[in-house]
Design a protein around this nucleic acid. Structure first.
Length: 731
RNA sequence: GCGGGGGUGCCCGAGCCAGGUCAAAGGGGGCGGACUCAAGAUCCGCUGGCGAAGGCCUGCGUGGGUUCAAAUCCCACCCCCCGCACCA
């Protein structure tokens, strides 16, 4: 088929009576002039390689000022001496300058030139960039462009001017419309090109109906949209939705009962398919599918005139989905038991409404909005959908996945190469719902490393076996109390994350944070001479809860560990772990931080001073009044008091009157942040340093002695001058 | 233009709603070390600058402001991404 025929063939589907009367080679026209309609300008015909000759005549109107392709083609042609002389158009082409006809804010005289240069388009063969440039320029001009004085419609916006131009052209009889598909190259499954056709008597759904719209909004307002930021998007689409075609002439699908030449367009009916899913299995196993199908055929074959058949179908769904009508009647019509019909009704009622629909933001403007509209149109309020969750795109190594880049990661490949649990863990940890997920091989490998660490750790705990003695946490070592607190906190906080569908938060807390806590626990208990029974008990305590917490993100591994722990049940069927608020103690975290900070401080001092000490003395726990002063100061500052007011208020109390300078010093350190807002008690401070002194020693590689600052056994340099809570002195 | 989302350290990316323990989680990359004949894998440490004592300076797009205190709150500006009906 040559090009003229292709265009003629396409047009024949668009309501035109087309006959091919002859053909002309484009080359024959080059160098000739045409007269444009409306403005009667003589315009030369020039060669260009970018033109798609499958569309229309293969001749396009060139607007180099505003169309990137035209601009680049003109530049190319000016440089192409060979073509210029072959067609004898050198003089014409050299004299051509783009004519700017649209004023566009933030762009120069020739928007096409601006964008082409910005994107670095090389020549008219640079299709990818030119398409991008065209998209940008057209969009900008369409929404923001204003026609200039040298046009027929000065001052009008581009979209208004376009309508006026069409009108003017058609009044002259110089206008016809040809529809084309975008993107162009779309093929049917049998390999034929897809073309646009003009359809008469199209059926529409009128989403503009105010009552319907109001109901849809009512539903939306009662729904959870996760992430919440997409709600506005839905609202915009709801407002904007109006007439939309709901049927087509070809393809698979259900015929429109009253006009069976038409097939219901998939977005128009697939949006409530989940209602049918609730009963599909029973409809099929009971043979009802066949009976429903027979009725449907009767309806369609009679063009909707077979009222009995139509009523039968309606009665069935009215009862099952809406609870309307009499189940005995329905049973009778279908020749089945009343119990079956009631069972279907119960099945539907058990599952509905849709508690959560998970999808992507690109479907907000179509599928997901229809989903809401159609539900509210058909179902009573109690069956309206409850929530929609959306997640962003997946990219790979920072790049969009596409076939042309050859970097698509096929789904079936994932469990084989990475294992399902690793992939789940990585995906869950890598990003939130509302941002793009970047699949990065290096990161996956790093997560895999953690997973192996976790696996080994869990198996070591299992190897040690279930503890035989029970430990009372309240009388255990601080570090064990700390770990137990961490676990309980992880349960508490990750449960909130789960409820909010903050999967990343949940994963970070339950897997990564707990893993590092347990590793820290092992490191510390390995050097402080902890009770073996206690450690064993604590690790088991953790693992029992940990496996349950991790079950959603790594179901297979969790199940395996659960069984290795000696359980006969499935962890997936176990109740979600409970936490105990009493076992959560933030003071322990602060205390552990205190130790870490002390270690880092000492290391830094040793590094800066380049001293290699024989031993280090840490003086901790200044007088108790200091703690009280700090807590009091924090309270006053948080109330909005100034530093001076806080100092005066504290010094005003008789017990602090004689230490005014110390009060002033402490308060100023609270204000400037040298002393943290949350501090532990003096008892805790001394206890944590004493219990973990071996750990401190192992970290700094030197003998360490913890001294009570108020009563030091050794103070050779007498450095205990000004000294604050949370701020050990070192010797 | 309108609507929405963003701009954080070499890179990715938390934090921001509820200001203070934030030189700023986590990861990647880089550097150093352990292990190894070696490489890889793994593990440990360092990774804004300065510093002979726990500190100072710079710093979260830009410029202002509020505050004792700002990555976080307010105002203005710049830049990036996404969407915008019959498709230019």
């Amino acid at each position: 088929m040559d090009n003229i025929e292709a265009a003629a063939w396409k047009l024949s589907y668009q309501g035109y009576d087309v006959k091919v009367v002859g053909s002309v080679r484009g080359e024959e026209l080059i160098g000739k002039y045409v007269i444009t309609p409306l403005i009667n300008r003589r315009v030369p015909v020039l060669p260009a390689g970018f033109v798609d000759e499958n569309t229309g005549t293969g001749i396009v109107y060139s607007v180099p000022a505003h169309a990137p392709y035209d601009y680049v083609a003109l530049i190319d042609l000016k440089k192409d001496e060979e073509a210029l002389s072959r067609y004898g158009i050198k003089e014409i082409v050299e004299s051509i300058e783009p004519i700017s006809i649209i004023k566009l804010p933030n762009y120069g005289r020739y928007p096409a030139k601006d964008v082409v240069e910005k994107l670095g388009v090389k020549d008219q063969g640079d299709k990818e960039k030119l398409d991008e440039a065209t998209r940008i320029v057209y969009r900008e001009e369409f929404y923001n462009g204003v026609m200039k004085e040298n046009t027929l419609f000065p001052g009008l916006s581009v979209n208004e001017a376009r309508e006026r131009t069409i009108k003017a052209l058609s009044e002259q009889g110089a206008w016809g419309r040809m529809y084309e598909l975008e993107p162009r190259k779309v093929y049917t499954r049998s390999g034929n090109p897809v073309i646009a056709a003009v359809i008469k008597d199209q059926w529409f759904l009128n989403y503009g109906n105010p009552e319907w719209k109001a109901k849809a909004f009512k539903c939306l307002n009662s729904m959870r949209i996760i992430p919440e930021k997409y709600r506005k998007n839905f609202e915009d689409v709801f407002n904007w939705l109006s007439m939309r075609p709901c049927a087509r002439k070809r393809g698979l699908g259900t015929r429109l009962p009253w006009d069976p030449d038409w097939i219901i367009e998939s977005l128009s009916d697939s949006t409530i398919y989940m209602a049918y899913y609730t009963i599909a299995h029973k409809v099929r196993s009971s043979g009802l599918d066949k009976k429903l199908g027979d009725f449907a055929k009767r309806v369609i074959n009679s063009r909707g005139n077979d009222k009995d058949a139509l009523n039968a179908i309606m009665a069935f769904f009215n009862y099952v989905f809406l609870g309307e009508g009499d189940p005995s009647r329905v049973a009778e019509v279908f020749g089945v038991s009343k119990e079956l019909i009631e069972d279907l009704r119960n099945e539907f009622d058990y599952w509905y409404p849709v508690d959560e629909r998970h999808s992507g933001p690109d479907l907000i403007s179509s599928h997901l909005s229809f989903f809401v509209f159609h539900h509210v149109a058909i179902f009573p309020e109690k069956y309206w959908p409850r929530s929609i969750t959306l997640n962003e795109y997946v990219i790979r190594e920072g790049m969009k996945m596409s076939r042309s880049l050859g970097n698509v990661l096929p789904l079936p490949y994932i469990p084989r190469k990475y294992s399902a649990d690793l992939a789940r863990l990585y995906l869950a940890s890598a990003t939130d719902l509302d941002s793009t997920l970047d699949w990065r091989e290096d990161d996956v490998a790093s997560v895999a490393g953690r997973l192996v660490r976790f696996w080994n750790l869990a198996n070591e705990i299992i190897k040690e076996g279930k503890p035989t003695v029970n430990i009372d946490v309240r009388s255990s070592s601080l570090i064990t109390q700390w770990l137990v607190s961490k676990v309980n906190k992880a349960i508490r906080d990750s449960t909130v994350d789960m409820d909010n569908e903050n999967i990343r938060g949940y994963t970070l807390k339950t897997f990564f944070d707990l893993l590092s806590s347990v590793e820290k626990y092992l490191e510390i208990t390995g050097v402080i001479n902890a009770s073996r029974d206690e450690v064993r008990w604590a690790l088991w305590y953790v693992l029992e809860r940990w496996v349950k917490l991790l079950q959603p993100v790594m179901p297979h591994i969790a199940e395996e560990l659960w069984h290795r722990m000696g359980n006969e049940t499935f962890v997936s069927l176990e109740p979600w772990p409970e936490y105990s608020e009493e076992l959560i103690n933030d003071e322990l975290d602060i205390a552990l931080d205190l130790i870490e900070r002390a270690v880092e401080d000492v290391q830094e001092i040793l590094r800066v001073t380049k001293i290699t000490p024989k031993s280090v003395y840490l003086y901790v726990g200044p007088p108790n009044e200091y703690y009280q002063i700090v807590n009091e100061a924090t309270r006053l500052i948080n109330e909005g008091k100034t530093m001076g007011e806080a100092i005066r208020a504290i010094v005003g109390k008789p017990e602090y009157r004689r230490m005014a300078d110390r009060v002033a010093n402490l308060v100023s350190k609270v204000v400037d942040g040298t002393i943290p807002r949350k501090i532990v008690s003096r008892e805790m401070e001394i206890r944590v340093f004493k219990e973990l002194s071996s750990y401190i020693r192992s970290r700094i590689g030197t003998e360490v002695f913890i001294q009570d600052a108020t009563n030091p056994a050794y103070d050779p340099s007498n450095r205990l001058g000004i000294h604050c809570p949370e701020d050990p002195q070192y010797t």
